[in-house]
Amino acid sequence: MTHNGISRYTMEIATALLTGAIGMAICYGAWQVGTGWTPSGPDSGYFPFWIGILIVAGSLVNLLRTVIGHRHKDETFLDAARLRSLARFTLPIIGFAIVSLLLGLYVGTTLYVLFAMRLQGHYAWWKSLASGIAISICFYLLFELVFQVPLLKGPLEHAFGIY
């Protein structure tokens, strides 16, 4: 951590650890289904296992290059201001995912567009809400009526008898 936000050094290490962890999970999953070479060619887990090993190895190199080489120590990954605008963008998206799970995509979309426009664009409440509802209705017309692909619906739609 530097004074004004997150340093790239930290993030390089974190990312290397993340990819390394994925690699290990893949090795474990591959090991569960067999990693050998049978008479009729490689087993189900043969390729995934070695892929996992390569991911771990690559991540290790990335980690060591960063730590030993002291690379990117002074570079800033995100300063406070950028972090704030990034948070304003990503937090509503995570909220969108959660609300959609509970209340369906239409309610999720309406609320998400409402808050995203408020937080990022500082539009008036009524404008944001109107846009949110308008977009939901567009989705409904397009997907449910024109293409007949149902989107995820929640209790609110069911209360109106829309399934």
Binding site: A97, T109, V113, A116, M117
Partner: peptide, 18 residues
Amino acid sequence: FAIIGPVIVAVIFTGVYQ
């Protein structure tokens, strides 16, 4: 962008669901 950004995100979510 403050309008088109959220719309793109919403379209992506509906797409992912489909």
